[in-house]
Design a protein around this nucleic acid. Structure first.
Lengths: 343, 343
DNA sequence: CTGTTAGCGCTTTCAA
DNA sequence: TTGAAAGCGCTAACAG
């Protein structure tokens, strides 16, 4: 079943059928109706390969989803997908492993799909500058920020991780906590960890509290199990800690579990804060104190930025829009996992 | 940069370049080397659209992921993707909404990508028989079973939901629970709900316990919030209940939260069971009693079944392999969310 | 408004 | 073993 068959059956030429199917206005209503009736009769769909081959440009936006297990990213994807229904683009998800190279994946998809734009959900493309430079369509990184500013095609939308972490740490301090330990990601591996750590340190320093990285910072993956292990290790090294500042809700939940196993109650004996505002924090007992990123805003703004750049790229009239690195507001969720220390 | 440019640069014809790039054996070593050197020089990649257009058949396996939020499915996807590295197939993820029609999505991808096989992760393709019949490549449904047996191309791998639910319910009964209420999915909407309910009823009947669907079954979506609401409603109608049997870990966690808000402790005052064995159940407090599906086995077996059918489809020699509907064993996770009732 | 037609980049016969 | 050439299904430019 090809456009030719449709043309034959409805008595028009392939050009007309093509025009109808592509929403070209230069078609008479009768022709449109006639063609559509045949198209519907057979549930005919244009061959995408042929379209792509011909037009040398797809209407595909590729989404590189790094680390399928992160619920946040899936939600972002869902929001973006929802908006696609009213947009003339096709979304193509590329799900890669937490340890895969997102820029390599993007380059692969560049060749295979020729997308008009790329959305990175998670990951840190800036870590692969040479590869990233090969990407010739606008892209936007959501949830992480692009620190390098010499990529004219890469924008980013993120929440202010420094401020978020600072806010959360300040809440602990305001509640009388002084001996606070940190469960965080590897500072070498991702700038997001660095920022959250900086925010934490800012709050500590503002309060004149000391912090010993060697003793009181434990590296953890963004999952439950590692959070639990980190909590255990920190407790051994810092038996007098009163609070754990973590860089993710999953770490926080893992830590809570570990504390419970050690007979310590949250928040009565140890306070714990999460990060990200994962929905589970609302249902966990105790409800977790956390920083909520506004997923909807993040996804929408990211998509808007990309669409602007794709759109004007098509017109190719004026100067290309410069990339933007935006920070969106976060919100603090008080929860129940931080106790007020009487002093 | 096309195959033509490559051909020109290395002095061979496009046919030869194509043969080299496709691993066709009828190429002289010199030609191969020459071509490859130029290909590597430019990092040339064949235009996929043109290949597809020409060969009318991709090496793509499409994966329809229904409901991005289900962690289980993402894990399954991860496992499948991991195995792809050693396989000559490309995976194409199609993420659709919980309420989208997975068979329509599959048909779309059939036209656009011409995959050699389809994996349904979640969903219930059997619910759309007419559409499903249009799919002309082998497919396999993982986590749900195909009840209809007149689809010669659709296989399935699932755990035995009836047995799993029965096992879980029996555990409650063995611990002295008699007044058990159920938080479950809509029996109309998915056969998986019917099966889990049947398993539950089986256990109840075996123990000679009555169950009043109207009074003690509450329909809930597979998420936290609805689980909480359901728990509240059930408690109002059944103030004397001692246990909640739920059809998903998320519902169970939502229910636990609701119970805590009502001042009821789990499991001391009310016992709760989950379903699926989501990793969070191990870190929740209390650890949830649940049925764990063996994700790895499910994913691997599902892929194996599909590969067998794709493979022999290519040979096209003997009779096509019939579809199989397999049930894999589950495991019961005791957890800590069920109390022993003294009677 | 509609029909005709030249490719898009590739694979795959067919001949050499 | 290699080259030449015919399309795959579609779009878009052009002619009518």
């Amino acid at each position: 079943m090809t456009i030719k068959d449709i043309a034959k059956e409805c008595g028009y030429a392939v050009g007309t059928v093509s025009r109808v199917l592509n929403g070209n206005p230069n078609v008479s209503p009768e022709a449109r109706e006639k063609v559509m009736s045949v198209v519907n009769k057979y549930d005919f769909v244009l061959n995408n390969s042929a379209r792509l081959l011909k037009s040398q440009r797809s209407h595909t936006i590729a989404v590189i989803l790094k680390g399928t297990s992160t619920i946040l990213l899936n939600n972002l994807y869902g929001i973006i997908q929802g908006r696609m229904e009213n947009l003339p683009y096709l979304l193509r998800a590329v799900v890669i492993d937490e340890y895969d190279d997102e820029v390599a994946a993007a380059n692969r998809v560049m060749f295979e799909q020729r997308p008009v734009g790329i959305i990175f959900l998670g990951g840190n493309p800036g870590d692969h500058p040479e590869e990233l430079r090969k990407i010739t369509v606008p892209s936007v990184l959501i949830t992480n920020s692009m620190d390098k500013d010499d990529f004219p095609l890469v924008s980013s939308v993120t929440t202010d991780d420094v401020a978020g972490a600072e806010c959360c740490a300040r809440y602990l301090i305001e509640n009388g906590h002084k001996k606070i330990c940190v469960i965080g990601g590897d500072l070498e591996s991702s700038s997001i960890n660095v920022k959250r750590y900086r925010g934490f340190r800012n709050a500590m320093e503002a309060a004149g509290l000391p912090f010993d990285y060697e003793k009181s910072y434990h590296i953890s993956k963004y999952d439950y199990g590692d959070g639990a292990k980190a909590a255990k290790a920190l407790l051994q090294k810092n038996p007098d800690l009163t609070a754990l500042f973590t860089m993710s809700d999953l770490m926080a939940i893992g830590a809570c579990r570990q504390l419970a196993d050690m007979g310590l109650r949250v928040p009565d004996q140890v306070s714990v804060t999460g990060y990200d505002g994962n929905i589970v924090t609302e249902y966990y007992t105790p409800r977790l104190t956390t920083i909520r990123q506004d997923e909807t805003a993040l996804a929408n703004r990211g998509l808007d930025i990309l669409l602007e750049r794709i759109g004007q790229d098509a017109e190719a009239t004026q100067e290309p829009l410069p990339p933007v690195q935006e920070k969106l507001p976060f919100s603090f969720v008080k929860g129940e996992s931080v106790a007020r220390l009487l002093s």
